[in-house]
Design a protein around this nucleic acid. Structure first.
Lengths: 317, 317
DNA sequence: TTGAAAGCGCTAACAA
DNA sequence: TTGTTAGCGCTTTCAA
């Protein structure tokens, strides 16, 4: 029977038939858990993030799942909603399930998390964030992304720039901001001339409201660099509804290149974070962790400027 | 030890400490698979759809996960990409994992699928589709949704309507179309006066191109009812880019009420399918399946018209 | 080529 | 209150 299921040894046709008959009669479904109990990994990968329904993470997840499927693995999707308690319990659950590994974007400090348990359970771990040298991680170069975005605007001739940030992902936002300042410096401009407004919250309402705040600035900026596409899209809608022309009156650059960026009325110029590739690489790194000769790797992905229609030369005054 | 892990019996403090010490020393992580081997269900729910990254299914998934988490369960997200083979293998994998249950939107006929195996494995099954009486299912009343959408436009005074469909989800599209015709009939209008155009493909390009086809119609329709929000949004962008006013020149109604519908430059009037609630109900139904006194249920969710800014009275000629 | 038996990590039932 | 043991479904090893 065991031989049949895993066909390790040849089986006489008669015996084979007898087994198949029994399987059909009993509606027998083999129990994978037994293998797991005996030390095998569960055929699953955990994917733990703070907001899995976010288009960004969904796209990362697509990359993960495609690799997982190739290897007969299934993806356990865990939405922590930014809660420390949920994060803990998901990671613990994955460890107890003996998943092959987990791809985690931790919202909290390392010591707060049951990563040790995950490792101790034998699972691989890949972190989507700056982390330590004892862990595989994939990061994105936010500084360089910020630099590219601002450099693009400067090259078009813009001098009055505003940076739009807001709550959520502070760490990344600061790097994008710093990168933008660096671009000003590189161009011989005063980095302090880069003004900044932060949305009051991550709600659409407050993001749309940024449009008014931008229009109220004096002198009015000719270009805005937004810390994320969703913020950029909301702000742009706010401008368009008031009859402001994009890019005629104000150019806009976003960040991430989520799917919606190219579908907008005015397709958004943005800094592309290769979301699918990020998921794919993370999954491959994870599978490599299970190999005995594995060495931890810290991968840093580079940004790419995608010019669409939301940026142009500033209107002469 | 077993007593400790499941605290069924009182334990002396000294013993407890001894156990905890051992757990810490060994970095012991209990192996859930053992319970599963002994007949318990794996603490997981499968979610199998043809396009899990689609915003619609993502939102359904959110409803599922919230219920799952309440019950200490995890969600296994399976994207079949419309492939029969993937659908089969995911369902088989879930059965072998002994998941508590699975929520499936099958792309194929019942007999083609290893549903029997899933059931035989002891898992609950909830189908998101018309199905048979021996299965729990949740469906949406597409006819009524189509009727509501068209009735809204008729009530505003529109008489020249066009229905926009396209490939993907044919079954549902036909019901929405039929519902729209019924609304015309109810209003004493000729149902055959409802014109129809189908997008050549589900790509954004072909959907945007619908705008031109609509504008080329003679007489030009004053309102369009689109079989889905994503189609409506793409088409609307096509119109807006050409300077056509929405709703001034053409009113637009979508279907589903995906998140993007309210974020559009012109927020979209649409027929709301309660996606989160759908996922939530499906998950609750699934958990009920595991109760011994469970009786199968076929739930039909009703549509709701959400009026935003993409519809208005037709411009007098 | 087939059958029998030990053992994986834990639970549950029992004995001490 | 604690320790011991059988057994869950399968793989693996060994014997027939």
């Amino acid at each position: 029977m065991s031989n049949y299921l895993n066909d390790v040894k040849p089986i006489a046709p008669a015996t084979r038939e007898r087994i198949e008959q029994a399987i059909a009669d009993l509606e027998f479904v083999p129990n994978r858990a037994v293998k797991v109990m005996r030390g095998a990994r569960a055929p699953a990968i955990g994917y733990v993030v703070s907001d899995s329904p976010d288009p960004f993470f969904v796209e990362v997840g697509r990359g993960i799942e495609d690799v997982a499927r190739e290897h007969g693995l299934v993806v356990v999707s865990c939405n922590t909603e930014g809660s420390r308690e949920y994060e803990r319990s998901y990671i613990t659950a994955l460890a107890e399930m003996r998943v092959a590994g987990a791809i985690v974007m931790p919202s909290f400090e390392r010591r707060d998390l049951p990563f040790r348990a995950l490792r101790a359970s034998g699972a691989g771990v890949v972190v989507l964030r700056d982390w330590d040298d004892d862990t595989c991680s994939i990061t994105f170069d936010d500084d360089e992304g910020g630099r590219l975005a601002a450099a693009h605007l400067i090259e078009l001739g813009h001098r009055d720039l505003v940076f739009l940030g807001g709550p959520g992902g502070e760490h990344q936002i600061e790097h994008r901001f710093a990168g933008a300042k660096a671009a000003l410096r590189d161009a011989g401009l005063d980095p302090e001339s880069l003004r900044r407004i932060d949305a009051a919250s991550a709600t659409v309402r407050d993001r749309v409201a940024l449009a008014d705040q931008v229009l109220a600035l004096d002198p009015r900026p000719t270009a805005a660099f937004c810390a994320s596409d969703s913020l950029a899209l909301a702000m742009m809608n706010g401008l368009l509804r008031q009859g402001v022309q994009v890019p005629g009156d104000i150019s806009i650059v976003g960040f991430n290149d989520v799917v919606a960026a190219q579908l907008a009325v005015v397709p958004l110029t943005t800094i592309a974070v290769p979301q699918y590739a990020l998921g794919e690489s993370a999954a491959r790194l994870l599978l490599d962790e299970l190999q005995p000769e594995h060495r931890h790797e810290q991968i840093v992905l580079g940004p790419q400027l995608v010019v669409r229609e939301s940026t142009g030369t500033p209107r002469p005054r």
